[in-house]
Computed example of a mutant assay.
Amino acid sequence: VDNSGRCEKSGEKEENSSEFPGPRMESLPEAVLIRILASIPAVDLVLACRLVCCQWKNLVDGAALWILKCQQEGLTGAESEENAENWQNFYFLSKKRKNLIRNPCGEDDLQHWGEVENGGDGWKIEELPGDFGKEFPSEEVHKYFVTSYEWCRKAQVIDLKAEGYWEELMDTTQPKIVVRDWYAGRSDAGCLYELCVKLLSENEDVLAEYKSETVDIPQDNDANWTEISHTFSNYGPGVRFVRFEHGGQDTLFWKGWYGVRVTNSSVTVEP
């Protein structure tokens, strides 16, 4: 193409640009630009908008945009949230927050639970409140697992990367990993309960561990449901899996299902 051709195209470009008078995006006040960007889906902000120019990259990497998105979507308010250091990570962790334990209440029999130890007559799923039992504090829970006259245990291993928690996030931010479980006995029988949770590396080395004491529930107890919880934090880099295990037995060695009852187990990754 000769010089005249290039000049002609240049002239066309100038003529076309004159058809759209007014300020360009880069001339907008930063506060206005942040409000515009806050209306864009978070994934697009990180994967596309961040690559447009240095100004947009700085805004996407900064706190103001993510604070606004958190406010717009109702993700702020608690003290821990107000003190969040990395608001982008806080936003994504808050949006992804869910129970990573599958089938926590026995609605799908023993599906998703592995390494099952069926002592005595093995695990059984029963409807709440059950014989000599109490209703669960939440109306959303309808069933529980119950143990027998010898130790019954079951476990789940959660793949954090498969659940969307990328390696850099786990290694640098090290978000809290919160573990909860609920247990109860029946009022006419004594029982034992244990919980053990391990944070594992890619090679399944144990990087952190929580093990409860062996809870001894006496016969003639009140059958109330009790919550047990533990929060892992500052656990160091390399965590890729969470192994959750719980179980128990009755202490009278009665045939059938008189042991500890468990339900509504949960593992959550939180800001």
Rank of each mutant, 00 (worst) to 15 (best):
G5R: 09
R6Q: 15
C7A: 15
E12M: 07
E14T: 09
E14F: 06
E15M: 01
E15A: 10
N16I: 09
S18Q: 13
E19I: 05
E19P: 00
F20K: 12
G22R: 06
G22H: 03
M25C: 11
E26T: 05
E26C: 13
S27Q: 13
L28H: 08
P29H: 14
E30T: 11
L33C: 13
L33S: 14
A38T: 04
A38E: 08
S39F: 07
V43G: 03
L45M: 06
L47H: 01
C49L: 12
V52H: 13
C53Q: 06
C54A: 08
Q55A: 11
L59K: 00
A64V: 03
L65R: 03
W66K: 11
E73K: 14
G74E: 05
E82Y: 08
N83P: 03
E85G: 07
E85M: 13
W87S: 05
Q88P: 00
S94K: 13
S94N: 14
K98H: 12
N99T: 08
L100T: 03
I101V: 13
P104W: 04
D108I: 02
D108L: 08
L110H: 07
Q111N: 11
Q111C: 13
Q111K: 14
W113G: 10
E117D: 06
G119V: 10
G119T: 09
G120C: 01
D121Q: 10
W123S: 01
W123I: 03
K124W: 09
K124D: 02
E126N: 02
E126R: 00
P129E: 01
G130V: 12
K134G: 01
E135S: 00
F136M: 00
S138C: 00
E140H: 02
Y144C: 09
F145H: 14
S148R: 12
S148C: 10
Y149V: 15
W151S: 06
W151T: 12
W151I: 08
K154N: 10
A155F: 01
D159Y: 09
D159W: 04
K161M: 06
A162P: 02
G164R: 00
Y165V: 00
W166N: 04
L169R: 10
L169Y: 08
M170G: 06
D171S: 09
D171M: 12
P175T: 08
P175S: 13
P175L: 07
K176F: 09
I177E: 10
V178Q: 14
V178L: 14
W182I: 07
S187M: 10
S187H: 06
A189F: 02
L192V: 12
L192Y: 15
C196G: 03
V197T: 14
V197E: 04
K198W: 03
L200S: 02
S201M: 05
E204T: 01
E204Y: 09
D205G: 02
D205I: 02
Y210H: 14
S212C: 02
S212E: 08
E213W: 07
V215S: 03
I217N: 03
P218G: 09
A223S: 15
I228L: 11
H230D: 10
F232W: 15
S233N: 11
G236K: 09
F244R: 13
H246T: 11
D250F: 04
T251H: 04
T251I: 10
F253Y: 11
W254P: 06
W254L: 14
G256P: 12
V262Y: 02
V262I: 15
V269N: 04
V269F: 07
E270T: 05
P271T: 01
